[in-house]
Amino acid sequence: MEQFRNIGVIGRMGSVKVVETLRQLKQYLVANNYQVILEEDTASILPGHGQQVASKRLLGEICDLVIVVGGDGSILGAARELAKSKIPLLGVNRGRLGFLTDISPSDLEERLSKVLKGEYIVEHRFLLDGHVERNGKPLGFGTALNDVVLHPGKSTRMIAFDLFIDGHFVYSQRSDGLIVATPTGSTAYSLSAGGPIMHPKLDAIVLVPMFPHTLSSRPIVVDGRSEIKLVIGETNEAYPQVSFDGQMNIACAPGDIIRISKKPFKIRLIHPTDHNFYATCRDKLGWASNTTAS
């Protein structure tokens, strides 16, 4: 197991509870002789912290581990910035669901102590890259850990688009858009739209139509190496958007082309040794507990 000495810390902005946990975390790490490097925005909400400060990108170059305090959205933002550096991420949950941030503030020091001693498991999660083209020229680019979503933005009109997978025409569709999700994102927006839950170890991508104008349109699961192309219909009156993890948007126009494929770099998520995907689903999604007699 890796030895962690230089530990980066990122916290979600705008939450008093996050600040409380950040102070507790910093105090614990400093007391145990770890080098703490605060992400620059995080440092701004911890006046008098006395620690080194760095940008997210620099954290990936100088740290052995980055701890993210917040919700799953905080992990998503950190993952996009740090994927290329291959630095492991550990999440402390101060959000709502917490599929990716599975250490609770109530037992932070106990569980963190075990992780820092080498008692942890590692998950590798892939991301998606999305490129938007207009008239054969690049218009915009984004990366997503959860999903790339074509949606109408503020418009209430349906979007007409063509779907191609690995160069093969699949269908033309009129709908509110399409969710292209990784296994990580299968428990997020994709799940709300009726998509399947996929185990994080799967090398697969799911395409989930949003309110399609046909009852026969269903989610499709494809190989994770697939190249997905969306062509926005020339006759569209709406100007849709492409979002990446719901945190970045690119405005599109009729005729634009969106290309989506797996990113060459994966992120590494650190979990305590008792982490279990199915137990997380049971807890976060309210699945029934075992009813069989012991």
Rank of each mutant, 00 (worst) to 15 (best):
D162V: 00
Y28M: 12
Y28D: 14
R57V: 02
K262P: 01
L269H: 14
L38C: 01
V222F: 12
V69T: 04
H168E: 14
R225A: 11
E61Q: 15
I75V: 14
V53M: 13
L150I: 10
A83H: 08
I270S: 03
E81D: 10
N32M: 02
G136H: 11
N249F: 10
T184V: 09
A288Q: 13
E61T: 12
D107R: 13
I197L: 12
G195F: 00
I165E: 02
R259D: 10
G130C: 07
S217N: 15
F4R: 09
N290I: 00
G142Q: 10
N249C: 09
G246C: 08
S175N: 08
I260N: 07
V208R: 01
V30L: 15
I205W: 12
G194A: 02
K17Y: 03
G233P: 03
I165W: 04
R268T: 06
I87Y: 08
P272K: 13
G95I: 04
H151G: 08
A204F: 11
M1Q: 05
N290S: 09
G194V: 00
T42M: 11
S294T: 11
Q27K: 09
V53K: 15
E119L: 07
P138M: 12
G185C: 05
R157L: 01
P200D: 09
D107L: 02
V148P: 10
F161A: 06
V242R: 01
G8K: 06
P272C: 12
L230T: 07
G70Q: 00
G95H: 08
H168F: 03
V9L: 15
R94E: 11
G286I: 05
H49M: 03
K17H: 10
S104D: 15
Q35N: 15
G177D: 05
D64M: 09
V68A: 12
A238Q: 05
I75N: 04
T292C: 04
L128M: 03
V221D: 06
F277G: 05
S217T: 14
S44H: 06
A253S: 15
S74D: 02
S192M: 01
A238M: 04
A204V: 07
Y239L: 02
S155G: 09
H124Y: 06
R80C: 04
D72G: 09
M13C: 01
K229I: 04
S217I: 06
I267N: 14
E61F: 03
V222L: 11
Q3T: 11
G255M: 02
Q3R: 14
V122Y: 05
R134K: 08
F244W: 13
G118W: 04
T101C: 13
Q51C: 15
V180L: 09
E227N: 10
A160D: 09
C281W: 10
F4D: 05
S85N: 12
F4S: 08
K17I: 00
L112S: 11
N6Y: 08
K229E: 14
I197K: 13
I257R: 06
W287C: 02
D64H: 13
T101H: 10
T280Q: 13
I267S: 12
I232D: 04
R134M: 02
V36S: 10
L202K: 09
G91S: 11
H199A: 08
N290P: 01
R157S: 07
G77L: 01
L269R: 13
R94D: 02
E237P: 01
A79Q: 09
E237D: 13
V231K: 12
H271L: 05
G71R: 06
R268A: 11
I260Y: 10
L191R: 07
G167S: 04
D176A: 06
L150F: 09
L127G: 02
H151P: 02
